[in-house]
């Protein structure tokens, strides 16, 4: 049976993830309220602005609800802003203070670590488990500064920092696999959700 995967749809690159997940064989729906997490095997937390998503999630307590489902076994895939919301710690968290995040990924991230938009870039990455390089688009991307759990597996690095990691049922990338037609990372997540 196709795994049921949600895409957090508060704001950001939602349609792009929906398309990549459908292409990978998942049954997909949007999530904007805690009740919509029911029965999901996986959830994608997309790229967008983490500050906006954290504020939109707060009134309905969506972040703790996602964490609860993660602890129950739902898989989570965070890209860019989704990585920031999944990380256990954010080193420059001023604009996120007072708002709950998901957590569960044993890393420390820094938001906008590369600087403004003129420093955004594209790269081809060697990814553990993929047999050829993966095109990766980094847009005002966060950096994983530190890994704080021995269970975190680094799947790819760029410029000396981990950029794709896995920690149990959490997959995360500081780039945007939803912006390129190469959906192998989504396939990996769909398989992780099903398993």
């Amino acid at each position: 049976m196709a795994p049921k995967i949600g895409v957090l749809a508060l704001q950001g690159a939602v349609a792009e993830h929906e398309r990549a997940l459908r292409d990978s064989g998942a049954e997909v729906r949007k999530v904007r309220r805690p009740a919509e997490l029911e029965g999901l095997d996986g959830l994608v937390v997309p790229g967008g602005e983490s500050t906006a998503m954290a504020r939109l999630a707060a009134p309905v307590q969506l972040m703790p609800a996602i964490r609860h489902r993660l602890d129950e076994g739902m898989a989570v895939f965070g890209t860019c802003a989704g990585l920031i919301l999944s990380a256990d710690k954010v080193s420059d968290a001023e604009a996120l203070v007072g708002f709950e995040r998901i957590g569960g990924l044993g890393v420390v991230v820094r938001r906008n670590a590369y600087g403004s938009q003129v420093h955004s870039f594209e790269d081809d990455l060697e990814v553990t488990g993929l047999d050829s390089p993966l095109p990766a688009v980094f847009i005002r991307a966060p950096v994983i500064e530190e890994i704080t759990s021995p269970s975190v597996e680094v799947l790819a690095e760029a410029h000396g920092h981990p950029v794709a990691v896995r920690h149990g049922r959490v997959l995360a990338a500081s780039f945007h696999p939803e912006l390129t037609p190469d959906y192998r990372l989504h396939q990996l997540f769909t398989d992780l959700s099903a398993g």
Partner: peptide, 8 residues
């Protein structure tokens, strides 16, 4: 892509 991240 940055504009795509601003959607919604």
């Amino acid at each position: 892509g940055l504009a795509q991240m601003l959607k919604g």
